[in-house]
C-alpha cells in the first residue's frame, strides 16, 4: 500500500502534529520504508485467526462504586501551563 504525501499530511493533521512540507517529505520516505516492511504481514494467511488484543486471556475486573479520590486540584494544576479560577485555559473555542 503505497504512501503518499497527502497521507502523511492527513495523519499529521489527525495527530495534531505541526509538520512543514520538508518534514512531511522526510517522514514520507521513512514511513514508506516502515510500511513496506509491515506489508510482509499480508503474505500470511490469517483467515479464521481471532485477533489477540492482550497477551493473557484475562477479563476485566470491576471496581466497587466508591468515591476514593479527594480534591487535589491545587497539586494537579501546579504543572498546568495556564489556569484561572480553577479552570484550564485554552485559546477560545468557537462552537
Amino acid at each position: 500500500m503505497a504512501l503518499e504525501h497527502t497521507d502523511v499530511l492527513r495523519a499529521a493533521h489527525l495527530a495534531r502534529l505541526g509538520l512543514n512540507d520538508d518534514e512531511a517529505r522526510h517522514y514520507l520516505e521513512d514511513l514508506g520504508r516502515i510500511l513496506s516492511m509491515v506489508d510482509d504481514l499480508q503474505a500470511l494467511d490469517t483467515r479464521g485467526v481471532a485477533p489477540l488484543a492482550h497477551p493473557l486471556d484475562a477479563t476485566q475486573r470491576l471496581r466497587a462504586d466508591e468515591v476514593t479520590e479527594t480534591d487535589r486540584r491545587e497539586q494537579f494544576q501546579r504543572c498546568a501551563p495556564a489556569v484561572e479560577n480553577g479552570l484550564y485555559l485554552v485559546p477560545r473555542v468557537v462552537e
Binding site: Q42, T46, V49, L52, A53, P55
Partner: peptide, 14 residues
C-alpha cells in the same frame, strides 16, 4: 489490513 491483521499475527506468534 494493518491493526486487525497484526493482532491475528500476534496470536500466531504467541
Amino acid at each position: 489490513a494493518y491493526y486487525k491483521k497484526a493482532q491475528q499475527v500476534r496470536r500466531l506468534i504467541r
